[in-house]
Design a protein around this nucleic acid. Structure first.
Length: 565
RNA sequence: GCCCCGAUAGUUCAGUGGAUAGAACAAGUCCCUCCUAAGGAUUAGACGCCAGUUCGAUUCUGGCUCGGGGCACCA
């Protein structure tokens, strides 16, 4: 399994007590020092030896095979020089054999996962800030599926909030409305509610009606939210994002399972009626230790439910599906809120989903706000990025049809935004800058795509068909070839750690580094005009293996590896 | 007020309890008779401060300073 198992086996044989997982092989700081290095810190700790001493003993006592050319001690490291032809061939063979599954560790085989993400209020076109949730969630879904999980993606449709009520009020003829009108109508409605309290009051009346099950009102809400939802989904679909289930908040207004929750809260003395006659929770009775967020109202005096109350019902509903993994992607603003829900559920011996938080994308002027119309719309961003990409595609791909070019440009635009967002840690704020996120050069998604396009171009140009299994004679002669291959060998570990960390950022980093190593190889090692026929084949297969690996990595990021661009 | 997050090069980001902290952008100088210059070569440039744990800390812990964000019954 492990690429360097041939190095690990003799060590394990010589030092009983060590296992495969104790031995971590890493690239040395410089390629000329060694082909691969073993860190001895971990096994030394296990054996109770000083690292440097273990390194010496490994070199002296372990019996390595003939493919290991040289073993040397370098302080706490053991450096290996290998028969690159043999090890390199193994790496390429494994990648080619696995193909689209290269990199999986199958840690999710036989397991089910439920992921909720995006869940935007159905009111207006999504902005790039909201899209961070969708991109993080979607990539996570791709990662889990790659690891073998059976994943169900849920989207919670907040279809009965105050915001929606205002929108319904502002739309006299929803059938004539388009999704594009929505942002303006939404902003206007909010402004009007601010200025005119009777308008806002009408909104609450509508909410009361819907909670009583008024069919006519329900129909109106449904028409508006459905229109919005479809519009939002079509924009998200441009990013390659989709969902399996849409759960409507209105279905959780009266949920019998909540009685048990109320009983549990009551039993702990955490339930009380506040000054406005609302049924509320005092979370300090459940272990909450500070003032902020101590009180939480569940039901209004007229018996109608607050948002939290419905959300608790929804959370119970999701948890009862008993997935092995139950995740929810939330903005930083929901941290406290989610803790509150988890606490309430815990009081009734129920569990909450595992939350994954991300920080906001900010404008230079501050936070984006749909209500105030201070946003960069995702669709606008994609339109502009696609247009800019198209300028290049026209130059590079003169022989393609306009339709084909447009498709490529669209993929480049998606790569730019998805890569820019996904490669940074989710807990960092990002200041949105129109120019740098529209950049296609440097550390960007399009750069990685470009390396794939180059590989495809090479493979098209070497007329000879490539064998599907690397031949026995497989020359790996230069440092750049070895650097590239040893990088490919680490991809499964990268996927494993990304899965454990629930973050696809390491995958993006890997794709970028691999693309850079390929580019070095590209400039130093001609394939079509390789010095020998054997090298032409080995290099050609290195290209294929690299493409497969990068393509898999980009796939997890929701980015398409292109043939041409 | 309370909570959370961050601090690495001029800028935007990686990264690691251990071998010389990586990129990109911006700046300078080069490279298309050479598989796509969305590229490459090359020059210059960084772990906020103070303690502690450790054989070893940019990484872990505490304090400080400076940023950023969130919350206070709203969806």
């Amino acid at each position: 399994m492990n690429t360097y198992e041939a190095l690990a086996r003799p060590i394990i044989a010589a030092f009983p007590g060590l296992e495969l997982n104790d031995l971590i092989f890493a690239a040395p700081p410089k390629v000329d020092m060694a082909d691969v290095a073993l860190r001895t810190f971990e096994p030394a700790k296990k054996l109770g030896l000083p690292p440097a001493e273990l390194a010496k003993r490994i070199v002296a006592e372990a019996q390595f095979g003939g493919d290991v050319r040289e073993v040397s001690v370098a302080g706490p490291y053991v450096n290996f020089k290998l028969d690159r032809n043999v090890f390199g061939r193994d790496i390429v063979a494994r990648v080619l054999e696995c193909g689209a599954t290269y990199g999986t560790n199958a840690t999710g085989r036989g397991k089910r996962a439920l992921v909720e993400h995006t869940s935007i209020n159905p009111n207006a076109s999504p902005h790039v800030g909201r899209a961070r949730n969708a991109m993080i969630g979607d990539s996570l879904v791709r990662l889990l599926r790659f690891e073998g999980y059976e994943v169900e993606v849920h989207y919670y449709v907040n279809d009965i909030g105050r915001q929606i009520a205002l929108l319904v009020l502002a739309c006299d003829h929803p059938e004539s409305m388009t999704f594009e009108d929505m942002l303006r109508v939404y902003a206007d409605a909010n402004a009007r509610a601010e200025a005119d309290s009777s308008f806002a009051e009408k909104g609450f009346e509508l909410l009361a009606k819907i909670e009583q099950g008024d069919a006519e009102t329900k129909k109106k809400f449904f028409a508006i939210t459905e229109l919005c939802l479809r519009g939002q989904l079509s924009v998200l679909a441009r990013l390659g994002i989709g969902y399996d289930r849409f759960d409507r908040e209105s279905d959780f207004v009266k949920d019998p399972r909540l009685e048990a929750i109320l009983d549990a809260l009551r039993a702990k003395g955490a339930l009380f009626t506040d000054d406005e006659q609302r049924l509320s929770v005092d979370l300090s009775k459940l272990g909450h230790t500070y003032d902020e967020g101590r009180y939480l109202a569940l039901l209004r005096s007229n018996g109608s439910s607050m948002y939290v109350y419905r959300d608790i019902a929804y959370t119970i509903d999701k948890m009862e599906k008993n997935a092995d993994l139950n995740l929810i992607v939330l903005g930083d603003d929901h941290r406290l809120y989610m803790q509150q829900i988890a606490m309430i559920l815990a009081s009734a011996n129920r569990r909450a989903p595992e939350p994954l938080y991300y920080s906001y994308i900010l404008l230079k002027e501050g936070k984006m706000s749909t209500r105030q119309g201070k946003v960069v719309l995702l669709s606008d961003f994609l339109d502009e990025a696609t247009a800019r990409a198209a300028e290049r595609v026209v130059e590079q791909c003169k022989d393609l049809t306009p339709g084909e070019r447009q498709t490529i440009a669209g993929h480049v635009a998606v790569a730019a935004i998805r890569f820019a967002i996904l490669r940074v840690s989710a807990n960092k704020n990002v200041i949105f800058d129109w120019d740098s996120s529209m950049s296609f050069t440097g550390d960007t998604g399009p750069y990685v795509q470009y390396s794939c396009a180059r590989i495809s171009s090479i493979l098209r140009k070497i007329a000879a068909p490539m064998p599907s299994v690397p031949p026995e004679t497989f020359p790996v002669e230069t440092a750049s070839e070895w650097a590239l291959l040893s990088k490919l060998a680490t991809y499964p570990e990268t996927v494993a750690s990304a899965t454990a960390a629930r973050s696809v950022a390491p995958i993006a980093q890997f794709a970028l580094e691999t693309a850079r190593l390929f580019t070095t190889f590209y400039h130093e090692c001609p394939v079509r005009d390789a010095p020998t026929e054997a090298q032409k084949i080995s290099r050609g297969l290195m290209c294929s293996a690299t493409r497969t690996t990068i393509e898999n990595a980009l796939g997890l990021l929701g980015i398409t590896a292109l043939e041409r661009m």
